[in-house]
Each structure stands twice: as structure tokens, then as C-alpha cells.
Amino acid sequence: MIAGEMERDTETLDVRISSDVRHIDMVVADIVRLAASWEYQRKHLALNLPVALTEALSNAILRGNREDPAKSVRVRAELTAERLVVEVSDEGVGFDLAACTADPTAAGNIMREDGRGLFLMQKLMTRVERFTDGGNVVRLVLHRG
């Protein structure tokens, strides 16, 4: 460790945004910047994180809150040297993660315009969970690897 450098065990971010997709990029950039400061893999910073986070946030805004300006989305991120955990909470009724994840690569689905969001989240993250905690929460976990 360089003299004077603070040793970090955990770093957190906690923000709340209104239900407007134009706010997504800013939150994604903040979390990617945080992960970059922990030297997460280049591919995680350029692909896995931004795409999965964008999916989680757009789901929360468009489907969870149905773009209701009176509703907000809370994003909590916790980073360590081992893993990144992001929880995206909306004010919707929630959904069944397994039931909503149809395989978009199946022959009958490949020409569909939608249906790839949850699939991509699950492909690009180490783990994706959904639960209710006073709101509908999607938790993304990415191991630094």
C-alpha cells in the first residue's frame, strides 16, 4: 500500500432517481467509475456492468414504476475487492424472475423485439435475485474474478 493511501474494505453508493430513463446513464456511469477504481476487469467495466445495470434500471422505471413521475427508483451499490452488489428497488408489484426469463435465443423468439433484458442480466452477472423489501428489489451480484 502506498504511504498515506486509505485502505478500503467496502465502498457504497446510494442514490434515488425519478422514473425517467434519461437518468439511467448517469447512475450507470457512477457505478462503473466506482468499479474502475477497484480495478474490476475491463470487460466487466465495458460490457457486463453497464448493460446489466441499464437493464435493471430500465425495468424498474418502465415496468416497475411505469414511468410514473411520482415514483422513484433507489439504487444501492456495495463494492469490495471480491464482488459488487447492486440493488435496484422500484415501487412496482414485482415479478417472477424465472417465469419472466424466456429464452430469447430460441428459434421462435429470435425475431422478437423484446424479451432480452432479464436474459442479458443473468448472462452478464454472476447472480441475479429478486425479492420484496418494502418495494420490488432486483439484486445484481458480480464477482470481480
Binding site: 465495458a46 453497464p50 448493460v51 441499464t54 437493464e55 430500465s58 423484446d114 433484458g117 436474459f119 442479458l120
Partner: peptide
């Protein structure tokens, strides 16, 4: 930069 599922959907 990156593309999300909405972007892929628009291309389709």
C-alpha cells in the same frame, strides 16, 4: 459504446 436489450430490439 455498449448496447442494451432495447437497442438490440430496435435493430431487430
Amino acid at each position: 459504446g455498449y448496447i442494451d436489450s432495447s437497442g438490440l430490439g430496435v435493430l431487430v
